[in-house]
Design a protein around this nucleic acid. Sequence first.
DNA 1: CTGAAAGCGCTAACAC
DNA 2: GTGTTAGCGCTTTCAG
Lengths: 338, 338
Amino acid sequence: MPKPTTIEIVSQRAGVSKTTVSRYLNGKYEHMSEKTKQRVKDIIEELDYQPNFIARSLKSKKTGLIGVIVSDITNPMSVNLVKGVIDHCIQEGYQVVTASSDEQVSKEKEYVLSMLNRQVEGLVVNIVDYNDYELLKSLAERGEKIVLADRTICESHLDMVTTDNYDMTRTAIKAMYDQGFDIVGFFSSSLLKSNVRLTRYNAFLDESSKYVPASKDLAYLLNNEAEYEPSLRDFLAKSRGKKAAIFASTPMALLNLVSAAHELGLQIPQDLGICGYDNLPWTKLMGLSVVEQPFYEVGLESAKILIDRIKNGLPEGKPKYVELKSNLVLRSSTQITK
Amino acid sequence: MPKPTTIEIVSQRAGVSKTTVSRYLNGKYEHMSEKTKQRVKDIIEELDYQPNFIARSLKSKKTGLIGVIVSDITNPMSVNLVKGVIDHCIQEGYQVVTASSDEQVSKEKEYVLSMLNRQVEGLVVNIVDYNDYELLKSLAERGEKIVLADRTICESHLDMVTTDNYDMTRTAIKAMYDQGFDIVGFFSSSLLKSNVRLTRYNAFLDESSKYVPASKDLAYLLNNEAEYEPSLRDFLAKSRGKKAAIFASTPMALLNLVSAAHELGLQIPQDLGICGYDNLPWTKLMGLSVVEQPFYEVGLESAKILIDRIKNGLPEGKPKYVELKSNLVLRSSTQITK
DNA sequence: CTGAAAGCGCTAACAC
DNA sequence: GTGTTAGCGCTTTCAG
């Protein structure tokens, strides 16, 4: 491997000082004669000289690196988020270091620390557990630039970009009642780790109370696959004689619900209406109504805010909180005739 | 943002020289008194000192960064490949810069160059077009470490990791005839850009010739969605009276084929058997038989080879070519009774 | 066993 | 207009 040309070599060949070459590289042509400028330019091209980024970084403290850590990169939603981040960062001249915490808080922390240690200039994090934010908070207080994407935490001073979970869940529940369902249940994976799920749960309770008395009794918080079928039976018993539907608050809940309904031989939507999060490819194939969240845009916006922070510091001091609008995709699973 | 502690600070506080601290950091305890070692250790912990990676990189020429460029990161197959690369790299102490060329050769080149320019130590590339490899080839000749993942190019001296496309396509075709189909067609997206597709095409021709005369006539190379339905009609006309099946050589071809079959009101597998690449989530839901490629392992293996090259140079000089075994997943779409 | 000093490749005061 | 010089934070000879 021939060792690459340095600014030193270029300056010697051009018969000027390193400073002059450096000035040329940084576009500071103001006080430079057209002649030397041209000369330097020619030599650089001749030698195909590429300035060393590392050396530049050492001086400038700017690595041009942004880190993104998602909870599960094999999840299509996460990928879109990552792509949004990457697309914006590249456009702004940054490169992106990616990692997946695989839903493990320990990995998340490890990656946050190691990325920062490698001097990424900022971090977009799709956090694993909203209870476990001390590290991120203290880092942010120390001046590190961190933006939370999709999954939020409460009382923090971090920038956050997420979607309109509360509003959209209410909208979806309302839409189901409007379609002619008399009773709408709520299936969700555990609320323990996710603020987002909690928000949707509250939205369900708030909206449902407009249509039925004890909406809390219609909400099922499921921890594992085995709980779905019994819960579904229970819900069906409660709604006997009524047009029943269920809102599945997470893709996991949606998948398990559909399987359970299938097991029980239910016809969708005649025997049971279904709607849920998110718009994964298979939901389309199965004609399921879903809430589609703009994950690519969440990534894009997160990167935008992050780079803004990096370039301009913390202008107003107060953290930004952005909620992007989701889209309700109605398909056959909620189409009934009253 | 308080400026981080440097080795200078640590050395002063510990009352030793920077050299000693540096030695400690690099685990060179051989000629170090237990006392100073302990002293340095304490101060480092007290100050929570983190050595600056950039400064280290400048000296050592090692950035600990690996680049991975895939043709389309939103594609589940690519994601698994990326994950394989990331998992192995992190385990080996490297971090991964990710980019997606979105099937554009120009972007691919741009990213290759800019990553190298940012001193990634090596690159895993899932190339866009197998005709356009001059850049990668010349870079490799210059000593850059590059491994091609999944998509290969012919006469090159690059390391490559892919799957057993030829063997598995033959196996799949054979399996279809063995299941009782009398005539098996071949639908593929354009062969222009992909060596992999060409390989599968040849495998089809070779295997088919064992069962039918002019197998070339049964192969359809489709450029856009609109061509699928007419091609399917054409194939059905050719196979009238026979148990017919089609092998779709790419996920795109598979999806379009299924749609076309649906349009024509065909029952799968009674009216038409179907098998294809790859094992995407929706193929399971539709009961389609597919070839499942080990993309995660392709990524893993690519990273392994790359890091080996980085650490040990080019031992034998000859490039490695690794073919990982795919898995034929038989589902209802190929289950007929003779 | 430890330290002084040179230098990785580049940038930026501060001269001239 | 251009060059000299002094670092950025760390590693590594080479002395002691």
